[in-house]
Structure formats: C-alpha cells, structure tokens
Design a protein around this nucleic acid. Structure first.
Length: 154
DNA sequence: GCCAACGTTGGC
DNA sequence: GCCAACGTTGGC
C-alpha cells in the first residue's frame, strides 16, 4: 500500500463547485488539458489520496473543502467526443492523451480559506498555489502544507 | 477588464 | 530546433 499523497484541484465554481460535488457525492475530474497535470492524473494520483478542492476565479479564490480520490487515472472520455468543448482530434481510444481520476466528496469547510489568508501563514511559504503565475489546475501538496491548512480550516 | 505568466503552435 | 505569435489561466 503506497503512502497517501495530497493534492489540490482547481475548479471554477461556475463550472463545477464544491456544492456540486456534495450533491453528486462522486465525480470524474474531466477536462484537464495540460501535460504536467495529465502526468500527475495518470501516474501519481492514486485511490485513497486526499484532495483540497479549490475555487479559482471566485470572489475570493479559496480552498473550500476536502475530497478523496476513489479511482486511479484512466482516459478522459471527453477527448473523444466530437463537438465536446474539450474534444481533441489528435487522440483516439487506442491512443489516449488525457486522463482523469474519480473523487468523492468528504467535507466542505464551514468557512472557505481564501488565498490571501493562506498567504499570511508562514508555514505555507513556497506552496505551489501561492507562487506568482501559478496556473496548474492539479498541484501536489506536501503533508506539512496539508496539516497546516487543515489546522486553519473550520 | 487588465495583464503577467505561462503553454502551445507552426513557419522557417 | 528556434522562437514569434497566439491562446489561456486566474489573481487583482
């Protein structure tokens, strides 16, 4: 059994929010079209791993809850669907390029942890999310960062 | 709405 | 294989 790892997944709440996940209980994390993020989805993110759910492009942007990975990476079916906004003509089921995982809702924070509040926590200095220009929608989180954030969450 | 910080594409 | 042009992300 591999050690549990920690991740942060970004979503624009207008597209898919923590409330949606709460309602759905589980979802597939489709639509990632970035190679670095793809590699993590395909190779590194495993069943049982823990996930921070982050609302990007929100007012304010914030970590809003926690989820758990319930299925290892597998091909994102939306890449094959002609007409789908994320359709990729250069892929085929024989040769998939994009991957996704399934996650399950665990909890929604009583209060979101906004990004400027995270910036005020000294232990989180250097966290990927807080780096200037950080755009990755799938990010690794260290155990220390995880524990620190959980300590501040309510 | 602005724009910095990327990532991707394609001509050469 | 370089790199300019273009597109996207996402905080502000």
């Amino acid at each position: 059994m591999a050690t549990t790892r920690y991740w942060l997944l970004k979503s624009e709440p207008g597209a898919y929010s923590i409330e949606d996940l709460k309602k759905d209980k589980t979802t597939f994390w489709d639509g990632v079209r970035n190679y670095q993020a793809r590699n993590m989805l395909r190779d590194d993110i495993k069943k049982g791993d823990r996930v921070f759910f982050y609302h990007s492009n929100a007012k304010p942007p914030a970590i809003v809850g926690v989820a758990r990975v319930v299925r290892d990476g597998y091909p994102d079916h939306t890449q094959f669907e002609q007409g789908h906004p994320k359709f990729d003509p250069k892929t085929s089921p024989d040769n998939p390029r994009w991957y996704m995982v399934d996650i399950a809702f665990e909890k929604e924070f009583a209060e979101p942890l906004p990004i400027d509040q995270l910036r005020d926590i000294p232990e989180l200095e250097g966290m990927e999310l807080l780096r200037k220009g950080s755009r990755l929608s799938v990010q690794p989180v260290t155990k220390k960062e995880w524990d620190t954030i959980m300590k501040h969450a309510r």
